[in-house]
């Protein structure tokens, strides 16, 4: 069963091709859609909502054709835009009730589900205050709530962690995870950072320049790309030798040493090797993946 299916989906604007024969099937669960800015993520969402016609190809959402059943799709899909969309002089309750009614919920159901949904996203007393005074984190929660209020079967979240601080980012990612695990709603979440979607998504789709670069489950991704960055005060070359001798894939990258993570033992091996050499360990951190790495690894992992 698929929630989203596209078949050589193409969108051409007069000057640019936003989507180029994109064929991808997305199963229920949390799917991360990763791509640099301008990779075609927002265009894809617009087409999936039935708001922009595709130039070529077809797409179906929840088994409904985007070209002919746009309104029915929009009744069962929630959308959280990337940009700000909240009027500042209205309270969160007032706003979410209104959006619920625009989605077709009768007045009493709209009020009830607004109260429930705002509680689920973690908005309590402040929901009666005008939204102009909210922090970015609170605004993102209201945006998520309005996408969930009509109990959709699928939500499309466009860059939900944009503008959030690290703690807010983690809270939002945890919340997105819960949307699937606890609410049973499938999620398509976009980001330009692969690293943050790894922890949240079951499946990751990477697009670039409007075409599919890679589509695979998150575990495949992390195994292939997780690496550790180590910086030491001296003896870099000896450390690389020692780690290689210990059966790890390590190489020097300037003053840094990159080690492929092969389970928790990798950390121990690095620690022991550093201790044996008696050198100073400046830092040891899990590497944050960026789109660029997918490009480098692109040839070994053939795109679907």
């Amino acid at each position: 069963m698929t929630v989203i299916a596209t078949e050589s989906l193409t969108k051409r604007y007069p000057r640019v091709t936003a989507l180029d024969r994109l064929t991808v099937d997305i199963a229920p669960g949390v799917t991360g859609l990763v791509g640099a800015n301008g990779a075609g993520k927002s265009t894809l969402i617009k087409i999936l909502l039935g708001l922009a016609p595709a130039t070529e190809g077809r797409a179906a959402v929840l088994g409904m054709d985007v070209a002919t059943e746009g309104a029915a799709i929009r009744a069962h899909v929630g959308y959280m835009p990337e940009h700000d969309c909240l009027p500042p002089d209205v309270s969160a309750t007032e706003f979410v009730v209104h959006m619920a009614r625009i989605s077709g919920l009768p007045p009493s159901a709209a009020r009830e589900r607004t109260a429930d949904t705002l509680r689920h996203v973690g908005l309590y007393e402040e929901r009666y205050r005008p939204m102009g005074g909210y922090s970015t984190g609170m605004k993102q929660r209201v945006k998520l709530a309005q996408a969930l209020v009509h109990d959709p079967r699928l939500v499309l979240l466009d860059e939900p962690t944009n503008g959030l601080d690290p703690v807010g980012r983690d809270d939002m990612l945890e919340l997105i995870r819960r949307v699937h695990t606890e609410f049973g709603i499938s999620v398509l979440v976009t980001s330009h950072l692969l690293g943050e979607l790894e922890r949240t998504s079951d499946h990751i789709v990477v697009i670039d320049g409007g075409s599919l670069l890679r589509s695979s489950s998150t575990s495949d991704f992390t195994q292939a790309t997780a690496s550790l960055t180590v910086e030491v005060t001296e003896h870099e070359d000896e450390l690389v030798e020692k780690l290689t001798a210990a059966g790890l894939n390590a190489h020097a990258d300037g003053r840094l040493i990159m080690v492929d993570i092969d389970g928790d033992e990798t950390y121990d091996a690095v620690r022991d090797a550093v201790a044996e050499l008696g050198t100073g360990l400046v830092r040891m951190e899990q590497h944050r993946h960026r789109i660029a790495e997918i490009f480098r690894g692109g040839d070994e992992h053939d795109a679907a």
Binding site: L49, L51, A71, A72, R74, A75, Y79, P81, H83, C85, M99, I102, S103, G104, Q146
Partner: peptide
């Protein structure tokens, strides 16, 4: 745009 992401 949020309105137009609804059935209207």
């Amino acid at each position: 745009p949020l309105y137009f992401s609804r059935p209207i």
